[in-house]
Design a protein around this nucleic acid. Sequence first.
DNA 1: CATTCTGGTATCCTTTAGGTAACTGGCATC
DNA 2: GATGCCAGTTACCTAAAGGATACCAGAATG
Lengths: 116, 116
Amino acid sequence: MAKKELNIEQKIKYVQDTLFVISGKWKLPIMMAINSGNNRFRDIQRAVPNITTRVLSKELKDLEENRLVVRTVYDSLPVTVSYTVTPYCKSLKPMVDEMIKWGENHRAVLKKAKPA
Amino acid sequence: MAKKELNIEQKIKYVQDTLFVISGKWKLPIMMAINSGNNRFRDIQRAVPNITTRVLSKELKDLEENRLVVRTVYDSLPVTVSYTVTPYCKSLKPMVDEMIKWGENHRAVLKKAKPA
DNA sequence: CATTCTGGTATCCTTTAGGTAACTGGCATC
DNA sequence: GATGCCAGTTACCTAAAGGATACCAGAATG
C-alpha cells in the first residue's frame, strides 16, 4: 500500500473539517473537563472558567449530536445527569496534546517578548 | 527537573490560548498555503479555496501582527509582494499534522456512518 | 421557612466573523 | 485603446457566536 501523500488542497480541506468540529471557544475545554472527571453539569461549569449555563447547555447538545459526548440520566431521587466522552472524542487527544504544548510555549514566548 | 504535570485548568487555559491564535476558518489554511510555496497574494488566494480578497487581506495583516507571517515588498517594476512564514509559524506543524490526520479520519468515519 | 444546590430554559442583547460587490492605479498584453 | 493581471481597499450587510440576566421545579440544609 502506497504511503499517503496529500497535496496542499487536501490538507487544507482536512484541517478545515477539523476546525469546523472543534470550532469556538468552548467545545474542546468542555470535552477536556468531562474527560478529566467532571461529569455533572455544574462540575463541568466550574471546571471551565467563565462559561455560562446557557452556552454550556447549547454546546453539550451540540457535542451530543456529534457523538462526542453522551448524556445519561440516572433515575435516582433527585435525578442526576452524567456526561461522559465517547471513544471517538478520545481520538482527539493527540491533537489536543499538541495544542496544550503549543499554548504553553506561546505563553512563554509572549512573556519573553513583552517585558520591554 | 521535575516533569511538568499540568492540571486541568492549566490545560484548558493553554488550549484556549492556542484556539485564540488559530481561530477562524482561514488562518491555518493561509499559513499552510504560504508554507507550501504560495508566496504571492493571488497565489495564496488561489491555493485557499473560496477565500475572498477582503478576508485574505485582513487575515494576512492579523498574521503579520502576530509574527506568524512576514510581508516583503520588492521594489521591482511592477512592485511584487511576497509573503513568507516565520520560524515561529513552523512550530505549529506538529499540531497541524495532527489536525490533518484527524480530519482525514473524520471524513472516513462520516463516509462509513452516513450510507444508510 | 429561607437559602442553596441541582440541571437546566427563556429573553434579550452585543460583538465578531465572514460574505458581496464595487473600485483603484499602475503595468502588460492583445 | 480595451482588456486583464496584480495587490489590495472601501462600504455595506447578515448570520452566528457568545454574554447578561432572570427564572423554573424539586430536594436538601440550616
